[in-house]
Every structure is written in C-alpha cells, then in structure tokens.
C-alpha cells in the first residue's frame, strides 16, 4: 500500500499545480477532475469506502457542471503575470502553514491507533443501538442526527439561493436596460 499511497499523494500535488497553472480553463477543469478521482482512490486505500464513494460521485457531477459551464463561456484564456510580492508572500504563507501543520501532526494519535473515548463507544454500540450494520450511517443519521439536519439545511439554503439568483427571469431583469419614464427605450439605451 505504501508506494501506491505516496505515489498518489505526489500525483495529487502535481495535478493541483497543473490545474492552477493551466492557461485554458477547460484543461484546468479536467485537471481538477483527475485530482478528485485520485483523491477518491486515496480514501479507498485508507479504508474509508463511504468517503471514497462520495468523493467520486460528487467529483463527477461537479466536473460535468464545470465542463458544461466552461464550454458555454468559450475558450477563456487565463492571463496572469507572476507578481514578485505575491509570490514571496505566498511562499512565506506556505512555509508558515507547513510549520504549524507539522507541529499539529505531532500531537495526533497514530493513524488507526487507539481511538478517542466517544468514537470507540460509537463503534461498539452502533449495531446494537441503531440496527445499522454500517457504522458510518449509524453515526450520521442516528447518533449525530443534528449535524445531518444542519447539513441538509445548509444545502437547501445554498441551492435555493442559487436557483433564485440564476433563474432565467432574474437574468432577463438584469440584462434589460433600466426604463426611464418618459424617455423612449432606444434613446435611453443610447
């Protein structure tokens, strides 16, 4: 597992850099899709099939939407000159982040090792307490139902907001020039 795992990690980093640096937005979207699929294989190797499935499925629908949107907007060329100040600032930020992350990782328990008290209780009591053979579902929908309710509310609000803002009627209202009373529309438009 180890060489595959680290190979995929390096592949993820390279893919992300490619996605960031591509000039063509369609190629960038495809690179993002490749990164997402590699990430799902990583989750599978780490023993989290639930998250792997979610990752793969969400990645597919997001990439479909993005490709469709990119195809609609035509060939958008990203032209951005590298700026010395922002590059230096970015490097400093990356170094700071890596330092903090290393310091934080040292306090973590070893991967797959002893579980915290609550997590262990959930794992032991999942089947008896809820009847779910799948412990992930037992936690999501029963023990931590409140979290899922909040999640559902967030998705509902986000989707309704997007639909309200992007529906054709709203676009037409935005596209039409404002009508000034007493002035013919052509004159006002000129």
């Amino acid at each position: 597992m180890e060489p595959t795992f680290y190979g995929l990690l390096v592949f993820l980093i390279i893919g992300s850099i490619v996605a960031l640096e591509m000039k063509d937005i369609l190629s960038s979207v495809i690179a993002v899709g490749v990164v997402g699929l590699a990430l799902s294989i990583l989750f599978l190797l780490l023993g989290a099939p639930d998250i792997a499935i979610t990752q793969v499925v969400v990645e597919i629908i997001v990439v479909t939407v993005l490709i469709r949107a990119a195809a609609r907007s035509g060939r958008v060329e990203m032209t951005r000159r590298p700026d010395l100040v922002s590059t230096v600032l970015g490097l400093i930020l990356v170094l700071c982040f890596c330092g903090f992350a290393l310091a934080a990782l040292e306090t973590l328990r070893p991967f797959g090792g002893a579980r915290p008290l609550v997590g262990h209780w959930y794992l032991v009591n999942a089947e008896a307490g809820t009847g779910c053979a799948n412990a992930v579902m037992a936690i999501l929908l029963d023990f931590r139902g409140y979290d899922t309710l909040g999640e559902a509310t967030v998705i509902l609000t986000a989707i309704l907001g997007a639909v309200v803002l992007l529906r054709p009627k709203a676009r037409e209202e935005e596209a039409e020039p404002a009508v000034v009373p007493g002035v013919p529309a052509e004159v006002a438009h000129e």
């Binding site: 479909t64 469709r68 949107a69 609609r72 989707i159 997007a162 639909v163 992007l166 054709p168 676009r171």
Partner: peptide, 10 residues
C-alpha cells in the same frame, strides 16, 4: 437544481 441553475437555465 444546482446543475439546472448553473448550466441549463442559461
């Protein structure tokens, strides 16, 4: 609905 809003409506 998200797909429709972002892609299909336009």
């Amino acid at each position: 609905a998200g797909f429709l809003a972002i892609v299909a409506f336009g």
